[in-house]
Simulated assay, not measured.
Amino acid sequence: MTCPAYAFASEGGIDAILPKMNEFIPMLVAFIILWIVLAKFGWPVFNGMLEKRENTIREALKKSEEAQIESERVLAEYKQQLADAKAQSTQIIADARAIGEAVKADITAQAQTEASDMIAKAKLAIEAEKKQAIADLQASIADTSVDVASRLIGQDLTEGEHRAIIERYVKEAGSFNGN
């Protein structure tokens, strides 16, 4: 019974699977009617559902492709904006460094100029004080030498004689100065 060959052999062979003629014709007529009804009413509905599903899938694929293209465009836009921002920040940093270097150079130049001016003013002040000290020293020496000369001579000199002696002495003392 487990093998179909034994089933055919025990019930009379091939007649077991073939329908009987009195059952075959009504089954054939019912099958044809069913087929016509399904072909007339069922198949268009089924075909419409298939076409609707196909259109839905096609539209979803089209929308997904459009979304992918849009996302790639937005990604490219963002990458471009990022690159622009990086370039702009690099330019800002370079400009800031250049400005910093320029300010540093200006400050250094200004400091050097001020230092040179201060040194020049100090030299002028030292030279003026030196000349004043020499003039004071010469006047003091002249007065001292007139006093010594008048004591040595033993007489007072007139104003004109004092001047002549002082001027001669200043000329001689000036030649010793060397400056």
Rank of each mutant, 00 (worst) to 15 (best):
D15C: 07
D15L: 06
I17T: 05
I17M: 09
I17N: 03
L18W: 09
M21D: 06
N22V: 06
N22W: 06
E23S: 05
E23W: 02
F24H: 01
I25H: 05
P26E: 02
M27N: 15
M27R: 15
M27F: 10
L28C: 06
V29S: 07
V29L: 05
V29N: 02
V29K: 01
A30T: 09
A30Y: 08
F31T: 12
F31R: 13
F31S: 12
F31G: 14
I32W: 13
I33N: 03
I33G: 00
L34E: 15
L34Y: 07
W35H: 12
W35G: 14
I36E: 11
V37S: 01
L38K: 05
A39M: 12
A39N: 13
K40F: 06
F41N: 08
G42D: 03
W43D: 02
W43A: 08
W43L: 10
V45P: 00
F46R: 01
F46C: 05
F46K: 03
N47V: 03
N47T: 06
G48W: 00
G48M: 08
G48I: 00
M49I: 00
L50Y: 10
K52S: 01
K52W: 01
K52G: 04
R53F: 00
R53H: 04
E54K: 12
E54Q: 04
N55C: 03
T56E: 08
T56W: 01
I57N: 04
R58F: 10
R58C: 05
E59Q: 15
E59T: 11
A60S: 07
A60F: 00
A60T: 03
A60G: 04
L61D: 13
L61A: 11
K62E: 15
K62R: 11
K62S: 11
K63G: 07
K63F: 10
K63V: 09
K63Y: 07
S64W: 13
S64T: 09
E66K: 15
A67K: 15
Q68P: 02
Q68T: 14
Q68C: 09
Q68I: 08
Q68R: 14
I69Y: 04
I69Q: 06
E70G: 03
E70T: 03
E70C: 04
S71I: 05
E72M: 01
E72R: 01
V74G: 02
V74W: 04
L75E: 01
L75A: 08
L75N: 02
A76S: 07
A76I: 02
A76H: 00
E77L: 10
E77A: 06
Y78F: 13
Y78I: 11
K79Y: 12
K79A: 09
Q80M: 12
Q81I: 11
L82M: 09
L82F: 13
L82D: 13
L82T: 14
